[in-house]
Structures are given as C-alpha cells and as structure tokens.
Design a protein around this nucleic acid. Structure first.
Lengths: 152, 152
DNA sequence: TATTGTTATACTCTATAACTATA
DNA sequence: TATAGTTATAGAGTATAACAATA
C-alpha cells in the first residue's frame, strides 16, 4: 500500500456505452428488483415467481397451468414443479375440468389467499423502495412504457 | 370440439395486477431483450454477458476481472470461466500488472476489437426493434430512468 | 494477515424428450 | 391424431468453499 488512496472502489471506469444500452440496464435493474424482493419478502418464503403465480390464480380462478406458463414465460414442466410445491404447501388446489377432463383448473386455497394478501401489503413498501428515485408520475410513465414494450 | 371458438388463446385473463407490478414487467421485458438478442446476434456466437464484457474491456483497457465482475453483478468465479472462454477464442488477453503481480489486466485482442465493433453495429437495429413502441424521446426517458433506479 | 485470481463443486433455473389420459 | 398435464433428465446459469500467489 503506497499512495493512490481511493475509498473502496478502484478506478472511475468508463461505463457510458453500457449505461446507454437498454438491455444491459434493464438486466441490472431486474437483478436489483430480485435482490430487493428476497430481502423484503424473506420471512414469507415466497419467490418472485411464486408471487406471480399466486396473484395470477387469485385474479383468474380456474386458470389452466398452460395459460400460467405462457404468461409467465415458463416452460410448462418447470411450472408444474412449482405448482407441486405450492400445492404441497397448501396454497393452491388443482381440480379437473368437467368439460374437458384433461384440463386442470387452478384455484387458491384460503391459506393461499391469505398469503397473497399479506404479500400484496408488503409489495407496496417494496415497490416504493425500488422506485424511490422516480417521482410518482415517472413511476407511472415507466410502467406504461414497459407495458408498451411488452404488450400482454 | 363444440362451439367456443377463439382463435388460439383461451380466455381473456385478468392481468391488471401483474401489469402494474414493476418488477414483474421488468422481468418480462428483460426476457424479451434476451430472446431478441440471441435472434439478432445468432451468427456472431455472442451472448449478452460476453457482449457486456467485451464492451467494458474495450472502454477500459487494463480493467481487473474483479471490477468487471462487480459491475456486471457476476460472481468472480463465474466471470473467470467466461474470461477463459473469451481468451481461448482469442478475443481478450490477460496480463499481470507490474505494480501488483496478483492483479490481472484485461485487454481486447485485435480480433476481439473487430468483433465488438461488428456487434456494436448490429446492436443499433436490435435496440431499435426492441424499443420500437417508444418514440425517440421516450427511449431517452427510459434509459435515464433506469440509470436513476440503478446508479452505476 | 489480507487480497486477487483461480479451481472445484453444489445448487437453482431453464429447456427438451417422452409418457399418460383424454379429446 | 392432437392436446393438457406430468415425469424424468439434461443443460445453463449462479453461488459457495477452498487453494495459490502475492501484498
């Protein structure tokens, strides 16, 4: 250790190119959201994916696994594993459709309903924290832009 | 098959909650960017991660692996594997620092320089395609917001 | 003793193939 | 034959532990 004292970081790197690369920034922001999620929801034993599944089933009782997989961009076999866990945990229930006995209908159990309700409460401070550097109006603009980039 | 004819999709699902969940939308947009990246850069044999590494080394010749890992949010051992591949492919060169012989300095080879230059050209139509639903001004706003959410 | 880079390894996430049952 | 769901399995990506060389 001689001179060259800088607090902790080494050098002022040139990051302009990457900062102006949308895909790169989106990826880093996404990692930040995931990291923040696990911090905020640590005690609930819930992941971003399971949160999305529960919210989707809550708003669409009877929805089919294939629909959930399609919307969440998960391969069906991978979703099935998560559904098995959610069902084992007593959060969702599977039943066979009477119209088409191949089809499965997903619904929340009371326990699942309670969990997603608590999670929704926690999600408010979580989103506030993640988006703190943006004004309310800007947060709305961001959401709107994201929905335009990826129409659902 | 009786009645109930709807083109291909099954039902009009209620997606409002998820559409208004920033982390969820950011994740889906990020997946779209990755998917689009592999389409557009298919022939170059380059991944989003290796693109970022090459661009970072190009703009910061002599940068240390630990700095690259920190910025790209990769664990150092995982970055090392990628560096091994990039070096084997003749795209980057490692050399030991003379000041601190533990430290490694990364630079692009001429071949690496040529590759990132070609990739940068392809990245223009790629970004244009990904962000097509946004106006030029909106694209700038988005980038600026992302940088505020995740200051680098 | 602390730091940088590296290797080995385990774990999670994602993708593909094949099977069951119903249509 | 085609479709919805499921199982099994392989691969990619990510995280942790331990080591070598140097400070």
């Amino acid at each position: 250790m001689k001179a060259n004292q800088q607090p902790a970081s080494k050098k002022p790197l040139n990051l302009r190119a990457l900062q102006n690369t949308p895909g790169f920034m989106i990826r880093l922001v996404q990692l930040k959201f995931f990291e923040g999620f696990y911090e905020q929801f640590a005690e609930m034993g819930i992941s971003p994916a399971s949160y999305a599944i529960l919210a989707l089933v809550r708003d669409n009782p009877g929805v089919a696994p294939s629909s959930v997989a399609g919307l969440l961009r998960l391969q069906l076999p991978n979703l099935i594993k998560m559904l098995n866990e959610l069902e084992s945990a007593g959060l969702i229930k599977r039943s066979r459709s009477k119209a088409d006995r191949r089809a499965v209908e997903l619904v929340l159990t009371p326990k699942g309903n309670k969990l997603i309700q608590e999670a929704a409460k926690i999600s408010e401070p979580y989103n506030r924290r993640m988006l703190a550097p943006l004004s309310e109006a800007e947060q709305g603009t961001l959401i709107e832009m994201l929905n335009r980039i990826l129409p659902l």
